[in-house]
Design a protein around this nucleic acid. Sequence first.
DNA 1: AAGGCAAATGTTTTT
DNA 2: CATTTGCCTT
Length: 721
Amino acid sequence: MDVTEIIGTLNPAQREAVTSADSHLLVLAGAGSGKTRALVHRISWLVEVEQVSPFSILAVTFTNKAAREMRQRIERLLGVPVGGMWVGTFHGLAHRLLQTHNRDAGLPDNFQILDSDDQTRVIKRLYQALDIDDSRWPVKQTQWFINAQKDEGLRARHLQASQDPFHRTMHRLYAAYEESCERGGMVDFGELLLRAHELWLNKPELLQHYQQRFRHILVDEFQDTNSVQYAWLRVLAGKDSRVTVVGDDDQSIYGWRGARIENILNFNCDFPDVKTVRLEQNYRSTQNILQAANAVIAKNGDRLGKNLWTEGPDGEPISLYAAFNEQDEARFITEQAKQWANKGNRWSDIGVLYRSNAQSRVLEDALIRAQLPYRIYGGHKFYERMEIRNALAYLRLLTNRQDDAAFERVINTPTRGIGEKSALTLRQLARDEGMSLWHAAEKAVAEKLFPSRAATAINGFLQLVDGLQQEVEGLPLHEQVEAMLQRTDLMAFHGREKGERGQARKENLAELVSACREFSAEDPERPALPQFLSEAMLNAGERQADSDQDAIQLMTLHSAKGLEFPLVFMAGMEENLFPHRMSGDEPGRLEEERRLAYVGVTRAMEKLFLSFAECRQLYGKDNYNAVSRFVRDIPAELVEEVRLSNQVRRPTSYAGGSSALFSDQGSGTGFDLGQRVMHNIFGEGTILNFEGNGPQARVQVNFDSEGSKWLVLSFAKLEPV
DNA sequence: AAGGCAAATGTTTTT
DNA sequence: CATTTGCCTT
């Protein structure tokens, strides 16, 4: 292959990264600087020019989507499928390792992956067993604690004994949780990584094998790695492998999930002779957008330092809309989106970004009313829906009777007369005898430990699953699932649910069957079902309906990372919402919010709208928030304030949006909604509402310093500003 | 075991 | 506000 094909289209910095012959390479890649491109081209370079065998390359990403895209792009560039190369997510690769070496990892060959919902259930059950009060120690908190420990590579036995009741309780639950997972052959997401790391430590000969194989390790989104992932990489790399990591400290937004931005710094210390390359030329956004982004992120300390620039045009100014309330904001966005599309642009070129999912609702309402096509990312993923999880639980039980989480889920779904009482007894028995729920049920039936009614029901369940297994043996995967849906009555059970829900559930189950039909097992030697289950657990979000429809894209700022849109709206640019109030106290959290703002701004290619609402109803209460500090950090000359009908240039004041929409609602008071007024005691504020007529007429004003107040118009001497 | 009502409870998300 | 959870009744 011609070398120019690999490096011909690259800028000097990219070329340096791609062709680097140094042993270790750190690529600090700003948003839109061609990060993935550099990674893909580097792999091609290694294979084509350095004649490295694809077998010795390991490329790691965070999401399945990124992994898939990387593989595709490599194959397109090289022109051939790259079989032996390992390209995947941390979790996917860890799973593969544990699968291949399950004995060395101390796992049964049919071990099950536990997602966070299963995890919650398992922990909940422990509360009963250990008689712990869940109102004092919330289950979610425990789950968070356990996952945080695993992210740091700490097992229960590593934790120090403590007098602190919180710590003691968590410790106890963690230990019990580990035991419970161990017994059931269940592995949660954190455990996949931790076990894979321990596999290196416990089996030196295995480690050596993989160290010799993978002489080239490449990591994408390195700023998102947590401690275990980093440790795993470091051990695997050993002394001889060459490691390339690509990341952007300014886009680290998953600290709350255990990601360690410090890993970038550690990389320089832990690996000798690291060459650092900065990719700072941006190919995505206009000057104005980039300057805004740079200004926002510049306020963070502790940056590795990077300044994005572009050869592109200045582009349009950034527009700021001061909405009266969240409905007004949504209406504005809808209106602007419509105008944009009328100019011949595609709907899918529009991204509407927000801080929290709760904001999507109002936007959705407005879009429905305007009859614009849209798609909301997030929400429940396909494999997280109840009916799908029920179906998967039966399938899991078919492969592994020890899977207590699955057992619990479907023991009485569809209802078959096994109530809480029987379940409790079963749990008790299982705990006392140290056996799985399935074994406990068998034992209880055999030894007639239940009243006949319950015993019949439980026996019916056991027979059902056992019978199903025989019936289904040897069938193609999708027929197995179809049979299961019929025999267990799940299909009919969910179809019976009232309203449209029943229909939707049935369709989803049918979708599951077709997912099975399309599924091609990685290893044709092993049964397809367990392979499908693992895939389903590791791929929870992938199957989403009508993803290719041309529609406006609504999503949180977090899920927008890695995407780009010609037109971007960032909605809800208000203090307490963004930065979120929960992130207020700790400075580190605020910095992460700022990075999130940076991520948001840098999604925009041509045009960026920022908007905020003077008054926002949140959880049923009115909130009056100041405009977000991130908006104020953008230099005024880059911003123009807009109204729905006519655009007004008013770069100096952000807080005083008056919407022309409401100007006729003043009911003869001489004031308009959204108008800025001055009160001789409370100072300046914005009019939010009117009430009553004549001398009793009252007005609600949101004062900049005092907050919102109701005033009787005839007494309060309000002056228009 | 299912349906109804009151109380609680509200970031961000991948695997 | 709106959804989910738990508790209570039938």
